[in-house]
Structures are given as C-alpha cells and as structure tokens.
Simulated scan of single mutants.
Amino acid sequence: MASSWWKQIIHSTGFGVLTRSLYVIATSLALQIVCNWWQPLFPCSPIWQFQVLPGSFLSFLCFAVHAISWLLVLAVCLTLDYAELMGVKQVYYSILGLPSPLYQKSEEHRRLFQHFRHPLSSSLLVVLWFIPMMCWDRFLLASGFTLYLLLGHSLDTEDYDYLKEQYELKEEQLWQSRLR
C-alpha cells in the first residue's frame, strides 16, 4: 500500500488524503488477524535455546535489550510526528484546507521518509530475534520481516544525523518544560 501504484488508485478516487490512514488501518487489521489466529506451523522444536535462570546475567541482558528496544520505539514516536505517521494530521489539514503537512517538513525529513518508511521497525527486529529460545514459526516471522526491511530501506549517515538532531531537540524541549 506504500507503492506509487496504490497511491495513484487512491488519489484517482478522490480519497488521496486518506492514503496514510488507510495504510495504518490495513496494517493494524492484518497484525490483529495474525495475533488472533496465529497457529504454530510446527511443534516447538527450538532452533536455539539458552538456559536462562532468573537473576542470571543472560536474563538481565535479554530484559535490558528488550527494554531499550521498546524505549527506542517510544523515542522515535516522540521524535517524529506521531499524528502524521498515523495519517490523522493529513486528514485534519485537508479539512482545514491547508496543504499537506509534509510540505512544512524540512528537506532532511522528507529525505528520511523516502529512505525509511517504517521508523519503528529496527527495534522490532531486535525484539523478534533477541530471545533465548527460537522456534521455527517465530524464525519464519523474524526472517520474513528482516528480508522485508532489508529490501525496502536505504538509510545513510545523513538520515541518522537528522534523526539524532531531532531526538536531541525533543529531549531539550522536554527538559525545558520540566524546569518551568
């Protein structure tokens, strides 16, 4: 649904402003269906399995890596415009008769989204792969998601620098608001 072919179809029907919202709704629906009706493909014969005792270093490491990954998901949501990522801002601007919010973004921001459509995906990859026991069904899911990301993104250091700058700006604004 992120392809130019699909966007042309939506724009030709007069619902172009809903492109992002439809994408988010379809993705959410697909994920909900997968979560609700997930059936293991094979009995859980692990590909790898590490003994993780409560309180052990490996247990702490798994927890820390997952916690950091989810915090990065939150940081990206706060750094980037979450309402725009969800498609709500585009609809709101259209109702007000304003141009797309994308036109108000810097060139660096637009460049980032040409290279990286799913800013939360890298952290989710870590959550999928970094576990003490990997079964075949999760391995297939993680492998498919990894291939999708490898084939669909072309980030470079300019994109990273822009994200870092935006994160530092948001962090500074957060600290200034707390000091007031």
Results as ranks from 00 to 15, higher is better:
T19I: 01
L31R: 00
S12I: 07
Y103P: 01
Y82S: 15
S28G: 14
S28Y: 03
S143K: 07
S45D: 05
S143V: 11
A142D: 02
T157N: 11
S59Y: 09
V34E: 10
I47N: 04
T146K: 04
E168G: 00
K105W: 02
W136Q: 06
H153M: 05
H109T: 03
Q49I: 00
R138I: 11
L179S: 15
I9E: 07
L179N: 15
Q49M: 03
S69T: 10
Y160I: 15
G14S: 05
E158N: 13
P46I: 04
L120H: 14
C135W: 02
V24F: 13
L155V: 10
V76P: 09
C35V: 09
I10F: 08
Y167G: 06
E172F: 08
C44Q: 12
G16P: 08
C77N: 15
V76S: 14
F130L: 05
W5R: 08
C135L: 01
L29I: 12
L29E: 07
L71Y: 15
P99G: 01
S45C: 06
F130D: 03
F139T: 03
W136R: 09
Q8L: 12
L140R: 04
V76T: 14
F60Y: 00
P46T: 01
L174A: 13
V52N: 02
E107A: 03
G55Y: 04
G97I: 06
L18T: 04
Q176C: 08
L128F: 11
L140F: 13
P101Q: 02
S45G: 06
P46V: 02
S12M: 13
F139Q: 00
M86I: 10
L151S: 06
L141I: 09
L102G: 09
D137P: 03
V73A: 10
L58W: 00
Y162W: 14
I47F: 10
E172R: 13
E108D: 14
M133S: 12
L41M: 11
A26P: 02
D159A: 11
S56K: 11
F116Q: 01
N36E: 07
A67N: 00
L149I: 10
R110Q: 13
F42E: 10
F116W: 04
L102W: 15
L125F: 02
T146V: 08
K105T: 02
S28I: 01
L169I: 04
S94I: 00
T157L: 12
F130R: 02
R138V: 13
K170Q: 08
G152T: 01
F15V: 05
L124A: 03
I68V: 13
R117V: 01
K105G: 02
A142C: 05
